[in-house]
C-alpha cells in the first residue's frame, strides 16, 4: 500500500475517490464527523473494503444538513459520529430523519465508546446500526463491510 492519494482540507468538502470504476453507478456514502484523524481512518478502512465507493465528508451535523439542502445529493448510506460540536450525532440523526427523501437511507452511528442507552436511543430514532470505533483499521474495514452488505441494497 502506498500513501493515500488525497489531501485533507479544512473545508470538509467532497472527495471523489473512484479508483476501481465498475462501470455501474458507484456506491456513495457520507461520513459526518468533526475529527480529521477519524475522517482519514474511516477513508482508509473504506478503501480497503471497496475502493470504488464514493465518500463524502461533513465536519458536523450543520454542514451535513446544508449539503442535504441540495436535493440531488442522495448517498446510499450515512455514517454519523456521536460526539460533535454544535449539533451532536443524535440531533443530526433526528434532523436527517425528518427529511422525507432521506428516510430510507440506512444510517450507521459511530462513536469511540459505547453507552447501551445511546445505542437503544439512536436505534429507536431510526439508525440501522451502531459501530464502536475500533483501535485498528482492519477491524473497522470488516465492520463497514458488514454494515454495507447487510443494509445497503447494491445498485
Amino acid at each position: 500500500m502506498s500513501v493515500l492519494p488525497f489531501k485533507y482540507s479544512k473545508i470538509y468538502g467532497l472527495f471523489m475517490i473512484n479508483l476501481r470504476s465498475t462501470g455501474n453507478e458507484p456506491l456513495q456514502c457520507l461520513l459526518i464527523d468533526d475529527d480529521v484523524d477519524d475522517q482519514e481512518i474511516f477513508f482508509m478502512a473504506l478503501q480497503e473494503y471497496n475502493a470504488s465507493i464514493l465518500c463524502h465528508f461533513a465536519g458536523d451535523g450543520v454542514i451535513a444538513l446544508d449539503k442535504f439542502s441540495d436535493n440531488s445529493f442522495l448517498p446510499n448510506c450515512i455514517f454519523i459520529d456521536i460526539n460533535m460540536p454544535r449539533m451532536n450525532g443524535v440531533e443530526c440523526l433526528e434532523e436527517i430523519k425528518k427529511i422525507e427523501r432521506l428516510r430510507c437511507i440506512p444510517i450507521c452511528m459511530m462513536s469511540t465508546s459505547v453507552d447501551p442507552n445511546m445505542v437503544a436511543q439512536t436505534k429507536a430514532l431510526g439508525a440501522a446500526d451502531f459501530i464502536v470505533k475500533p483501535p485498528s483499521i482492519s477491524i473497522l474495514t470488516e465492520l463497514l463491510r458488514q454494515f454495507i452488505v447487510l443494509n445497503v441494497p447494491l445498485a
Binding site: D35, D37, D38, I41, N83, S111, T112, S113, K133, P134, P135, S136, I137
Partner: peptide, 12 residues
C-alpha cells in the same frame, strides 16, 4: 470516551 479517543488513534 474522551480519554479513549486519543488512545484509539495512537493504536490505529
Amino acid at each position: 470516551h474522551d480519554l479513549q479517543e486519543p488512545l484509539r488513534k495512537i493504536q490505529t
